[in-house]
Nucleic acid binder design. Structure first.
Length: 699
DNA sequence: AAGCAATAG
DNA sequence: GGTTCTATTGCTT
């Protein structure tokens, strides 16, 4: 990007042009119209992860706990613990009995009530928001921050002199790292910004945490944990391959959960390298093009997903688990408890819920685990009003009766039943017409919206910005509705709420893009139609060189990928558009069924009973799968498609075609694969005589 | 819109 | 392994 600086005479070639368009509306207008401005630049993403969050909050509330081994307990589980306890062998999700065994002096505090954690969590987010508008929450204790703009601003009028890294650099020690600082000025600056944010969070909120600084969310998250308590790590592009390779199993890739890992394992894939090398066509067959592409990219450390601002929550729920509840009366009492607190939370939020859901977990020997079922319904207007308005024990009563109706749709209350969990949930939250809420969520009431740009006063180097100035974004405190601001040192001034975009009512998803007035004299307001944040469109990845499409990238031969990633000569790849290919007739599942037997138990010890694998060649032993790549792929082609011709097509096109052809494949497969795991679902429960209804006249 | 699965912390 | 108490997204009907 610096290279572009002196490129007055440099001709933008088509690819860069297009890339710019996709990359950043702002950069586009700047770049196109005045060549001088810094171009897209690499994104720099910060991942911030609070250290043993619940334990920290408890230690904050009671400082005496800092010196003792502390565990936060929910039911009979230690959900987290401080580092003193960890040194004694206590770990997360350990049972209380095990923990006490390991560490008899362990001090326990109850943590079922998340109120304090939630409040502190939002204070952290709010503090981060005061630095940059692009903050995405992940659970209560993690946040992503897109700090690209902050960096660009500093880079602009910066002491182009010495750059250095704050904190650790992945796979590079002090001296070597410093040498690299000048070749990665954005990341170097990013590391300083990370240090400032951590310091702000420490000094103002008293909390410590880890930060990861990298080119995308995936990498930032992965790197943030490399030095554990209260430290930070920056990942340089040349180390991407290292950090991906260092992952222990595919399960450690964010986005790959248990089920996906299982399916991958059934394909013979157990570590990241396996996935990197696995033939794209086979992956598409198993998962469909979009997921296949995502998985491939994840394995390579490629992630173009934007940091999406997290708004106020889209649902509020309260739940409790227990050994046994088996009577309608107990359900009512429990529901009332839960609803009382939920309604109170809802009232503080200020928005009005329009749908209500009841979720239960039934006990049964076969169905012992993980089956929740739920029923939901609209909330009648008169009940909705009572929630937000005056003290509404009234609302609670009505809601309990609603809950019982929903319950009767799931259990035969006349017969014996056994519940182990109840959850009540408000969703479809709408901001009430011009109320207090409007001012808080005002111009951005949609929970998730992407902000392309903010008109920043520029904090210029440190400290949160003065959010009372321009811009009309008073995001600070946006989430803590009703919570009388606690300890925010610099009280987040809820500035004159100018809800300019009077967007009440239906505002779903859209991108609000505000032209920047800051450093870029935006000149083509019209052309920039920066609504290119559309999910179906081609996505872009920043860590990749400017003219490489990430969707395609994942499908290139590995050598090429690595070459590209190592910043070697530009690939000659040109993004392809779909040719007017005439619709080919779908392959009528002429599946040459698995030409193989099982070979199931492969791949590491097979202690676990592998459920039988999905049909279609995936049951091959791993080596076979690897070797067989090409062959297996063309036997899937429709009869009227020449395999050779097909193989010549660009990989992304292959994927799209294949998805169309076997539109059903993944569909059939997935259920098949999960069948075993989930077959336990008991006999269907039919909605039953509403014996209970008579007790609730309702209205 | 409803219900559920998958993922995550 | 599916604990606890949430919350989000996407698929399917």
């Amino acid at each position: 990007m610096l290279a572009m600086e002196n490129s007055d005479d440099e001709v933008e070639d088509e690819n860069e042009w297009k890339q710019d368009l996709k990359d950043s509306p702002v950069a586009v207008s700047g770049t196109l119209n005045l060549l001088k401005t810094t171009t897209p630049a690499h994104r720099v993403i910060l991942h911030f992860d609070l250290d043993c969050f619940y334990a920290q909050v408890e230690m904050l509330r009671n400082p005496a706990l800092r010196e003792v081994p502390l565990g936060v307990q929910q039911k009979y589980i230690i959900v987290t613990c401080n580092y003193v306890a960890r040194q004694q062998g206590v770990t997360k999700l350990m049972s209380v009995t095990d923990a006490k065994e390991k560490c008899p002096q362990l001090v326990l505090v109850k943590g079922e009530d998340l109120t304090h954690y939630r409040e502190m969590s939002y204070q952290v987010t709010d503090l981060l928001l005061s630095f940059s508008p692009l903050v995405e929450r992940l659970g209560l204790d993690e946040n992503y921050v897109d700090i690209t703009e902050m960096i660009q601003r500093r880079l602009a009028h910066a002491p182009l002199s010495s750059f250095s890294f704050k904190g650790h650099v992945y796979n590079a020690s002090g001296a070597a790292a410093d040498a690299k600082a000048s070749s990665h000025p954005e990341l170097a600056l990013g590391s300083h910004i990370a240090a400032e944010l951590r310091e702000a969070i420490h000094s103002r909120l008293g909390l410590t945490g880890c930060a990861g600084i990298a080119a995308n969310k995936l990498l930032a998250k992965l790197v943030s944990g490399t030095f554990k308590p209260n430290q930070q790590t920056t990942l340089l592009p040349e180390s991407v391959d290292d950090i991906m390779g260092a992952l222990n199993g595919l399960r450690n890739l964010p986005g790959v959960g248990r089920q996906t890992a299982k399916m991958l394992q059934s394909l013979g894939l157990v570590n990241v390298r396996d996935l990197q090398l696995f033939p794209p066509t086979d992956l598409v067959r198993e998962f469909g093009a979009p997921t296949a592409t995502r998985l491939k990219n994840l394995s390579l450390g490629v992630d173009d997903s934007p940091v999406t601002r997290t708004g106020p929550p889209q649902s509020l729920s309260d739940e409790d688990s227990f050994k046994k509840i088996s009577s309608a009366k107990e359900v009512m009492e429990k529901s009332e408890q839960l609803l009382s607190s939920l309604v109170e939370r809802m009232r503080k939020d200020g928005r009005r819920p329009h749908t209500f859901r009841l979720t239960i977990r039934k006990y049964s020997a076969t169905n012992k685990w993980y089956s929740r079922e739920s029923r939901q319904c609209p909330i009648p207007l008169h009940i909705g009003q009572k929630i937000t308005n005056a003290s509404s024990d009234d609302a609670v009563v009505q809601l309990v009766s609603l809950a019982m109706k929903l319950l009767s749709k799931m259990v035969d209350t006349k017969a014996a039943f056994h519940l182990t969990l109840i959850n009540v949930c408000f969703s479809n939250l709408q901001t009430s017409g011009r109320g207090s809420i409007t001012s808080f969520f005002g111009h951005d009431s949609s929970p998730k919206t992407q902000i392309s740009v903010s008109s920043h006063p520029d904090p210029s180097s440190s400290g949160p910005q003065d959010n009372s100035s321009s811009g009309g974004r008073e995001l600070g405190a946006a989430h803590r509705l009703g919570t009388p601001s606690v300890t925010t040192p610099e009280k987040t001034t809820r500035s004159p709420p100018r809800c300019h975009t009077a967007t009440l009512g239906a505002k779903t998803k859209q991108s609000t893009s505000v032209p920047s007035e800051a450093s870029h004299p935006v000149t083509s307001p019209s052309s920039t139609t920066c609504q290119d944040r559309d999910d179906t469109a081609i996505t872009v990845t920043y860590p990749l060189p400017p003219n490489v499409d990430p969707d395609v990238f994942g499908l290139l031969p590995v050598e090429i990928q690595k070459e590209i990633l190592s910043e070697s000569p530009q690939s000659t790849y040109q993004p392809r558009l779909l040719p007017p290919e005439p619709r080919l007739t779908p392959l009528p599942t002429s599946r040459n069924t698995n030409n193989t037997e099982e070979a199931i138990g492969r791949c590491d010890g097979g202690a676990t009973p592998h459920q039988q694998l999905p049909p279609g060649g995936s049951t091959l032993p791993r080596e076979t799968i690897m070797e067989e790549k090409r062959l297996s792929s063309d036997c899937e082609l429709p009869v009227n498609v020449d395999p050779k011709v097909f193989s010549e097509l660009p990989a992304d096109l292959q994927m799209e075609l294949m998805t169309e052809w076997k539109r059903q494949k993944p569909l059939l497969k997935v259920p098949a694969a999960k069948k075993a795991a989930r077959e336990t679902k008991g006999g269907g429960r039919k909605s039953q005589a509403n014996s209970l209804l008579k007790y609730f006249k309702h209205t």
